[in-house]
């Protein structure tokens, strides 16, 4: 069974969101998503300072198998990106909830978080696939 931490929020498009408690949110892709994609070879990230809206395609995870768009799960400004992925895209496979994080957003409206799935709902959504 896929690892789905209970303290995170999820988008149905397989991004996870961690509330850092200071109005910023860290985003990555789930273990289930990296498993579907296989070995990651390139990760294209947004730029720090980019303004993004919910549902924008803001990054690309490219694996040996396919290129997959990553969508912004909340609106706001990108305040950090995981530059280590440039040289170590495999971090997304090996540690999707840790060293494999993608970018951090300063939320415009943290109320948007309510539209995301909790761990149980995300698990139910991937069981339907």
């Amino acid at each position: 069974m896929s690892n789905i931490p209970a303290d995170l929020k999820y988008a149905s498009t397989h991004e996870w969101v961690r509330d850092e408690g200071d109005g910023t949110f860290t985003i990555g892709i789930t273990e289930h998503a990296q498993d579907l994609l296989g070995d990651m070879v390139f990760v294209e990230l947004p730029e720090v300072g980019d303004k993004v809206s919910v549902g924008d395609d803001v990054a690309v995870a490219e694996s040996v198998k396919a290129a997959s768009d990553i969508y912004a799960p909340i609106s706001g400004e990108v305040i950090a990106i995981n530059e280590d992925l440039e040289d170590a895209p495999e971090n997304v496979n090996n540690d999707p909830y840790g060293d494999g994080w993608l970018f951090r957003i300063k939320a415009e409206d943290s109320g948007e978080l309510g539209n995301l799935l909790d761990a149980d709902a995300y698990e139910a959504s991937i069981d339907e696939d």
């Binding site: 070879v41 390139f42 294209e44 490219e62 040996v64 396919a66 290129a67």
Partner: peptide, 11 residues
């Protein structure tokens, strides 16, 4: 053969 040294994967 094709070679692309930029980011991305030829498919």
């Amino acid at each position: 053969g094709l070679v692309m040294e930029d980011k991305g994967v030829l498919r």
